[in-house]
Amino acid sequence: MSDVLSYPFMQRALVAAVLVGVVCSVIGTYVVLRKMAFIGAGISHSAFGGVALGYLVGLDPIGIAIPFCLATAMAIGWVSRKGRVSEDTAIGIAFSSTMALGALFIGLKEGYNVDLFGYLFGSILAVSESDLWLILGLGLGVIVVVALLFKELLFVSFDEEMAAVSGLPVQTLYFLLLGLMALTVVISIKIVGIILVEALLVIPAAAAFQLTRNFVRMMMLSVLIGVVSGVGGLFLSYWWDLPSGATIVLTAAAIFFVCFVFSPKRRRRPALAKN
């Protein structure tokens, strides 16, 4: 074990996995409760277009993915809020066309690049020192925003219409949450991969939801599950030489399955209070 940790790449991957586990699980709590899982899938897959564009023009793929994902998130939000196209249709269009753009950019680039597999499914070798700083900076930024707007995000997640009636800026908060989702996706790409980020946005929070009826406890449990999946998955990835995204997500899925089976919510019906 100790010699595993002596590798610098593994140290970086571990720190990244913990950070990504925390941030994905916090944002995932809102994604699950607001039923935004499909939006998450749309935003995360759009990262492929950004990464491919970075490749094509010879810039840092993650750096290009940031504005690309943010723009896609805002576009999905804008189109669905306009109400002319339903939300899932808007996502379906953004999802597929940004992936297609990615394929187009890759095609335009002379000589196929094998590194792409790492971007799609995550790799423990992929996290450079500059990546780590980016993950740390953006991750902390996301957490700080959530902490500052904790009560507002709770209110709009529970009852957006009522929040609007109370005078809260619900539109701004909705787009802010989409932006936070986009940043969360981007910092997770290296370790979990574009295709699999969605799982980390949904599974830890969904597992936590099986265990508690308290919002704060749900978020805490979600973070715990996210970090355990991240770290556990990383070691499995190292030992079995598999893509880290796959092992992290499958660890999370296994935890979800256990939580689902042993959920106290399923074992007994909630006792209806007497008047």
Binding site: F155, F158, S166
Partner: peptide, 14 residues
């Protein structure tokens, strides 16, 4: 939604 009664009523103050 995982919130308590008092949490919901407090939202009226937000």
């Amino acid at each position: 939604f995982p919130v308590s009664v008092i949490d919901v009523v407090l939202m009226g103050r937000y």
